[in-house]
Each structure stands twice: as C-alpha cells, then as structure tokens.
C-alpha cells in the first residue's frame, strides 16, 4: 500500500502542529485575560492599549499579521536599529497567539460583564478592593461562561496553525505540500491530512470539554 509510506512524515508534521497549537494557545490565553481585563480597567492608558490591541488584531487578517511579523518586522527593526529577526517558530507562535488572544479578550470581557451586579455589591459590602473583586469574585464566576467559546477558539487556533507552513515551518500542512511535490498523489495525501486535522480537533475539543467541566464544577452541584 502506497499510503502507509506517508504516515511517518505526516506524523512528524502533526507533532509540530501540536506544539504550535499548545504554545500559541498558552500565549493567546495570557493575552486574552490581560487585554480582556485591561479593556474593563478604569486606567485610561491600560484601557486604550487593550482596545487598540483587540481592534487591530481582530480587524486584520491572520495571514497579514503573520507576513507582517515575518517579512516587515525585521525591516522595521533595521530602521530603528534593533535586531527583530526571529526564528520562524517564534514568529508563528507570536502571530497565532496575538491573533487568538484578541478574540479571546472579547470572550473574557463579555463573560466578566455577565457576572450579576449583585455579586459586585456583595463584594463591596465585604470591603474587597476593585482589583480583588475582579480577580477573586468576578473572574472565577466568569470562567465557566468563557469555556465553550474558548473551546471553539482553541479548535480555530489548531486550524490556523496550517498557515505557518507558508513561512516554511515543518508542520502538517508543510509536510503534506512536500509529499505532494514529491509524489503528485494529492488525493491520498490531502485526504489523510484532512482526517489528521479532524482527529486532532476532536481530541482538542474533548480536552477543552474536560477543562470546562473542571472549572464549572461548582455549577453542577445540586441539592
């Protein structure tokens, strides 16, 4: 059978795809909480910074962001006398994380704003500071609210990693393109690749489902 020969190189690509997904999801989560909470901040500078970040990265295309960081940023670095040439892996993780983080920030903001006003009043009556209220009372309650959209974003992020093959990173999409050039057996290769992405997406969605149940466990307890 021909197709068995493709398994090894494609699995190597899968591994790179998984690594990229994990790193960029972690970066994206940090940015999502930072910018999402920043948008709710009363400090005008932090708020403006967060809003600008969210709007720019949600308003432009991921591929534009990726190419900008890969092709344009080093030139900007030359202009201002800094070495801003990064390894393609760094550029890929940065672009994916920045992009998904901007979408995640809106999820965080929306979920925090959906916490009932009465919870903020109870916190005030107990004399919590604004920051404590946000991080100790509002955010933990908002977390389960965020999980379903976060699950969708994680799968979106996995799919988006395919674009880093365009800056010659050896992920699954890149391996597939290499094999196709070599063998011209497009039907077999791309069918396999589609199912591999599908499989990874299902596993990721299942993991996010477990996480969702974990952070929302106080919700499911009933008398």
């Amino acid at each position: 059978m021909e197709w068995t020969r493709y398994i090894d190189p494609l699995l190597q690509g899968c591994w790179v795809t998984i690594e990229l997904t994990v790193y960029s999801t972690i970066l994206g989560t940090l940015l999502a909480f930072g910018a999402g909470m920043g948008k709710l901040s009363h400090n005008p500078l932090i708020k403006a910074l967060s809003v600008t970040y969210i709007e720019v990265f949600r308003g432009t295309s991921l591929l534009v962001q990726l190419f900008w960081l890969y092709f344009a940023l080093p030139l900007l670095g030359e202009l201002i006398g800094l070495d801003l040439r990064f390894h393609p892996v760094t550029v890929g993780v940065l672009a994916l994380g920045l992009n998904i983080g901007a979408y995640g920030a809106e999820v965080v903001r929306g979920a925090v704003q959906s916490v009932p006003r009465t919870q903020y009043e109870a916190a005030k009556a107990l004399n919590f500071t604004r920051t404590q209220t946000l991080w100790r009372i509002a955010l933990p309650q908002a977390l389960p609210e965020m999980m379903p959209p976060f699950g969708n974003l994680a799968v979106q992020n996995l799919k988006d990693t395919a674009l880093v093959s365009l800056i010659s990173l050896g992920d699954l999409a890149f391996r597939a393109e290499q094999l196709r050039n070599l063998t011209q057996d497009s039907t077999t290769i791309y069918t396999m690749v589609l199912f591999m992405y599908f499989g990874m997406a299902l596993v990721l969605a299942a993991l996010m489902g477990l996480l969702e149940r974990h952070v929302g466990r106080w919700r499911h307890r009933r008398r």
């Binding site: 009043e121 500071t129 100790r136």
Partner: peptide, 26 residues
Amino acid sequence: GMVFQHFNLFPHMTVLRNLTEAPRYV
C-alpha cells in the same frame, strides 16, 4: 455588614471560603 434579600453568596466558593475570603484578604 449587610445581609441581602437574595443572599448574594459567592456561588463558586464553598460555604467556608465564603466566610474566610474577606477576613483573609481584606
């Protein structure tokens, strides 16, 4: 201190933590 009509307990904390959170951090 205030007691509300709708209790307004923190739903994500156990009863014990509802009682210890503010004394500890405030």
